[in-house]
Simulated scan of single mutants.
Amino acid sequence: MGAGFLGLDPGLILILLAMGCFGGFSAGLLGIGGGMVLVPFMTMIFTARGFAPHLVVHMAIATSLATILFTSMSSMRAHHRHGAVLWRVARLLAPGIVIGSLIGPWIGKQMNTAMLSLFFAAFVAFSATQILLNKRPGGGRDLPGTPGMLAAGGVVGLLSGFLGAGGGFVSIPFMTWCRIPIHNAVATSAALGFPIALAGTAANIYYGWGEPDLPPGALGFIWLPGLALIVVASMTVAPLGAKLAHRLPVVKLKRIFAGIFYLLAAYMLWKAVSGSFN
């Protein structure tokens, strides 16, 4: 292996940068989290690099979640400047989110890699279908009281910590169902990405600490070289995706992205059932 940046060969550096660009662009353009893109591709990369098979999906999910620590801050600032973040709602959801985000990685650690890959494949396929159908839940009721918000936040955090995603796939439908306008729901979900990522990243470092088969450059379940390159690329390209969202035929692009996500879901399903992680 060459002695390139962060000890990586130039080819792998370009792949990681391209992956970060694709994840950032899709997040900016469609408002989806990068986890759907990053986890399958990182699983491919970690497998190709010879990481321990029983750790590749755990590390892919953990590294994906860690990227949200950085990308959520720029997104949150942008939405806050437009006055779209409902901080009262965020404060009510945040305690449950932190608790759930600590528990989600623990649940993932108890699962073998094939089962975790199977769950992730189902998540990506479901999310791709939602993108394709473009259905928004109608207003159903007002926001619940403090116990209900704690429980809702717990579900968002648990699924996010478990799957390495930012939580928007759950929090946005919940808030719009509670009669919050969609632009406020998206902005508030962006603000919630930071506590999700902070708690989930801390949990993944703790739960992965001392694992005997971790590769060089790992901090718990997080692979730092990949994290650094993906963050740089995704934070650079995400604003471009957001800008082009108002100029490009997003409906047609959603169909293309949904097709890509179905292929990624099929890859994770194949990895789960083929015995590749044994």
Score class of each variant (00 low, 15 high):
residue 83 G to S: 06
residue 4 G to C: 05
residue 255 R to A: 13
residue 224 L to W: 10
residue 139 G to H: 09
residue 235 M to I: 11
residue 209 W to C: 09
residue 248 L to A: 14
residue 257 F to Q: 06
residue 204 N to W: 09
residue 7 G to S: 04
residue 77 R to Q: 12
residue 278 N to I: 12
residue 151 A to Y: 02
residue 110 Q to V: 13
residue 101 S to K: 08
residue 275 G to R: 03
residue 159 L to C: 13
residue 162 F to T: 00
residue 183 H to C: 00
residue 223 W to T: 04
residue 7 G to A: 03
residue 162 F to C: 00
residue 128 A to N: 05
residue 272 A to K: 05
residue 264 L to K: 05
residue 121 A to H: 05
residue 45 I to T: 09
residue 182 I to Y: 14
residue 248 L to T: 13
residue 234 S to G: 09
residue 80 H to I: 14
residue 152 A to K: 08
residue 253 L to C: 06
residue 31 G to E: 00
residue 241 G to H: 03
residue 119 F to V: 13
residue 272 A to N: 05
residue 160 S to C: 03
residue 89 V to N: 12
residue 71 T to H: 05
residue 41 F to G: 00
residue 172 I to C: 07
residue 233 A to E: 01
residue 270 W to A: 14
residue 4 G to S: 06
residue 64 S to Q: 01
residue 68 I to Q: 02
residue 100 G to W: 04
residue 104 G to R: 01
residue 106 W to E: 11
residue 2 G to R: 14
residue 17 L to T: 04
residue 128 A to Y: 03
residue 19 M to C: 15
residue 6 L to P: 07
residue 203 A to Y: 02
residue 240 L to P: 10
residue 175 M to V: 06
residue 195 P to Q: 04
residue 74 S to P: 10
residue 276 S to N: 10
residue 189 S to K: 08
residue 204 N to R: 06
residue 116 L to C: 07
residue 242 A to P: 07
residue 155 V to F: 12
residue 112 N to R: 10
residue 191 A to N: 09
residue 5 F to G: 03
residue 95 P to G: 07
residue 22 F to P: 09
residue 190 A to L: 11
residue 239 P to D: 00
